[in-house]
Nucleic acid binder design. Structure first.
Length: 461
RNA sequence: GGAAGCUUGGGUGAGUGGUUUAAACCAGCAGUCUUGAAAACUGCCGAGGAUGCGAGUCCUCCGUGAGUUCGAAUCUCACAGCUUCCGCCA
């Protein structure tokens, strides 16, 4: 969420910055709502002040045993007007909030201008793709050839966009995750955390997935899956009950129909980990906070029908090791470079060729101010594919979450949040299979992973 | 799933309808004293917001949301969370 003060003081400037990333801010609407808010808020507060002082007078008078009927008659006339003003204020405030919640972050000044993925800027290329003296196979053929990758069974169990790993390949997948976690905790100073995979809507709101991207998420209702029709039915029953109790004045008994609790499946560990500091004031000396978590990630892939349908590139469920830093605002860009380096280390240790790119204004995510993508070389596709995305969100998420620290003056100030994949485990597995494949269909295990594979050097049929 | 209790500024915690503005203590900050530190003493010390050039004035917040009232931390209802016990369970 953007700073509403920034919008009030420099609306045109903010609109211009948002325009660079292709977002058209409804300036007229904002101004209209702001004008309304100002009028209504001032009037509401004035009425509240009058009510408060009159009520206080009644208290004084009653204490002295004086007659209060005159003041009470006067204050009684305030009631309706005040209630109406409060309702109006509430409406305009929530309209403003709604408008604010769907405005993306402003890009950092160093973000290259551009419209799409094609305008992203390459920062560096590391490692050289190996030359193969045989026809390379993609990870699907390699995995199936080794008997360790089984999409058919996964489809039977769950459906499209799921995968099933078996034997040494399942272990290799686990080895990758373990290796990443150990590297980040032992060498990069991150604290490992284990977190909930289901979160509430407040957490999704905090990191920016809600309210705008609900269709990308999976959700569940505690107490069983509830269909849309059932939901409507429950809502009707609730309303009928409420009406009944209001009309009759009967007491509502605990255990009557109540709302179902909704959980969202995390699309990334960013959500639970970053929300650790939601509504917190972190002491200055605790900064920076650096957390690493290995979790499954669940994405509906609603907008990507037909894309990457072969293999395990784009799945409804995949594992990821996520790096999160919660830092002092002055340290966030320093932190981003550091975090990016930590993610790169994994690829270097695995000896996988990759390149780093800076996303342009048109391709950058909703909440991010600056994003680096790391793409790993996939020989079968003869191209680099995204395996990590490292972003600085500045105070955008912190403002939504009210995540703050106490500055040297002792005043609460918004933190900056950063995160990046270190790395996507499924895609790392794909990269290892394809880059380490041999002519006979076997796959050599990268040296750093062998301790996690019981010393195994190669996976063959 | 059942029962009981609880939820108040960074922490502990008083506060059962108005008489002052949420007491007190701890932590924190500043100062006095001291060669320095500690102790002691003095003062400051929740968050968000409106308005104003400013000093200031005002509003909101006692788990969340409704309600009763001229007036609610306090009364009523619902929900959430925590603690303990019972049941079930990996």
């Amino acid at each position: 969420m953007l700073d509403i003060q920034a919008l009030r003081t420099d609306l045109a400037g903010m609109a211009a910055r948002l325009a660079t990333r292709g977002f058209e801010l409804d300036v007229a609407r904002f101004q209209e709502l702001e004008a309304q808010r100002k009028t209504i808020q001032t009037r509401t507060q004035e009425l509240q002040a009058r009510r408060n002082s009159s009520s206080k007078l009644i208290g004084h008078a009653k204490a002295k045993g004086e007659d209060t009927s005159a003041i009470m008659a006067e204050v009684a006339t305030l009631g309706d007007e005040l209630k109406q003003a409060e309702v109006q204020l509430d409406e305009v405030q929530s309209a403003l909030q709604k408008l604010l919640e769907v405005i993306p972050n402003t890009p950092h000044s160093t973000v290259p201008p551009g419209k799409s993925e094609a305008d992203n800027v390459e920062v560096r290329k590391v490692g050289t793709p190996a030359k193969f003296d045989f026809a390379v196979k993609d990870h699907v053929s390699i995995g199936e050839g080794l008997g360790g990758l089984d999409f058919e069974t996964a489809t039977k169990i769950a459906g499209a966009r799921f995968s099933l790993l078996k034997g040494p390949l399942a272990r290799l997948h686990r080895a990758l995750a373990q290796f990443m976690l150990d590297t980040h905790t032992d060498q990069h100073g991150y604290t490992e955390v284990y977190v909930p995979y289901l979160v509430n809507s407040a957490s999704m709101r905090g990191t920016g997935q809600l309210p705008k991207f609900e269709e990308d998420l999976f959700s569940v209702n505690a107490g069983g899956i509830v269909t849309a029709e059932e939901k409507i039915q429950i809502e009707k029953m609730k309303q009928a009950d409420e009406k009944h109790f209001k009309e009759t004045g009967e007491k509502i008994v605990s255990g009557m129909v109540t709302g179902n609790k909704k959980f969202y499946l995390i699309p990334t560990a960013e959500v639970p980990v970053t929300n650790m500091v939601r509504d917190e004031i972190v002491p200055l000396e605790k900064l920076p906070l650096k957390f690493v978590a290995h979790t499954p990630c669940f994405r509906s892939e609603a907008g990507s029908a037909g894309r990457d349908t072969r293999g395990m590139i784009r799945q409804h469920q995949f594992d990821k090791v996520e790096l999160v830093q919660i830092v002092h605002p002055e340290k966030s860009y320093e932190g981003l470079e550091e975090l990016l380096g930590h993610a790169e280390t994994i690829l270097q240790k695995l000896n996988l060729p990759y390149r780093v790119g800076k996303l342009c204004t048109g391709d950058i995510g909703f909440s991010a101010a600056l994003t680096y993508d790391i793409e790993v070389w996939l020989p079968a596709q003869n191209t680099y594919r995204e395996i990590s995305s490292c972003s600085n969100f500045e105070s955008f998420q912190a403002r939504r979450m009210q995540a703050r620290f106490r500055n040297v003056q002792g005043k609460p100030e918004l933190l900056h949040t950063l995160n990046g994949s270190g790395l996507a485990v499924g895609r790392a597995l794909v990269a290892v299979l394809e880059n380490y494949q041999q002519a006979d269909g076997s796959v050599v295990i990268p040296e750093v992973l062998r301790p996690y594979m019981g010393g195994m050097e190669k996976i063959s049929r």
